[in-house]
């Protein structure tokens, strides 16, 4: 995060954070956002385009952008990179076959310059499913240890069904962003 953007953030009136949720289709992004917001998650269609949710979290206002992950619309992801403070990468821990795909897309994303300052939260979702990989296993598959040392990242296991792990993940993300951006107050 450059000096200029820090200043820009400080100038903002509210303590706003822009959070981008991405990941392969079917990973559970929309379900997670709705769950955090306490909404009904029983009927969710695959996201065509994107949703924005503004959520007050602790003393911050989170603007969460949930972008559809179907292959055809992944190329639109880059329209949302600008000014992202936090990046949430959602993984379907039960979808073993597409882990390669998942790794490739994440790697591509992390090469993106406009996202270089963003804190990265990896949610190993669907931990409630029997046979799902653990967060540690997901970390190995995605080879997270090899990531650029300057990146702030964390992996958390969660389930959008039970809600387990979600707050833990977002707590980390918000704290991490806050400590970088709003450190001056």
């Amino acid at each position: 995060m450059g000096l200029l953007s820090i200043i820009r953030k400080i100038k903002r009136k509210e303590k706003e954070m822009r959070i981008l949720m991405v990941g392969l289709d079917n990973s559970g992004k929309t379900t997670i956002v709705l769950k955090i917001n306490g909404e009904d998650t029983s009927v969710i269609s695959p996201t065509l385009g994107f949703n924005i949710k503004t959520i007050t979290y602790q003393k911050y206002t989170l603007n969460i952008w949930d972008v559809g992950g179907q292959r055809t619309i992944r190329s639109y992801w880059r329209n949302y990179f600008e000014q992202t403070d936090g990046l949430v990468w959602v993984v379907d821990s039960s979808d073993l076959r597409r882990l390669d795909d998942c790794k490739m897309e994440l790697d591509n994303l992390l090469k993106e310059e406009r996202l270089s300052g963003a804190s990265l939260l990896i949610l190993a979702n669907k931990q409630d499913i029997k046979g799902a990989l653990t967060p540690a296993e997901i970390a190995k598959v995605l080879n997270l240890e090899a990531m650029d040392k300057t990146r702030h990242w964390e992996i958390v296991g969660c389930s959008a069904y039970t809600g387990e792990g979600l707050l833990e993940g977002f707590d980390w993300l918000v704290q991490d962003i806050a400590s970088r951006i709003y450190m001056l107050d």
């Binding site: 292959r71 619309i73 992944r74 190329s75 639109y76 390669d100 790794k103 490739m104 897309e105 790697d107 591509n108 190995k140 598959v141 995605l142 080879n143 090899a146």
Partner: peptide, 14 residues
């Protein structure tokens, strides 16, 4: 929008 190019996955990870 172009299709994401298939990048050969890192052999380390596998």
């Amino acid at each position: 929008p172009k299709e994401p190019e298939p990048v050969k996955s890192d052999p380390v990870s596998t």
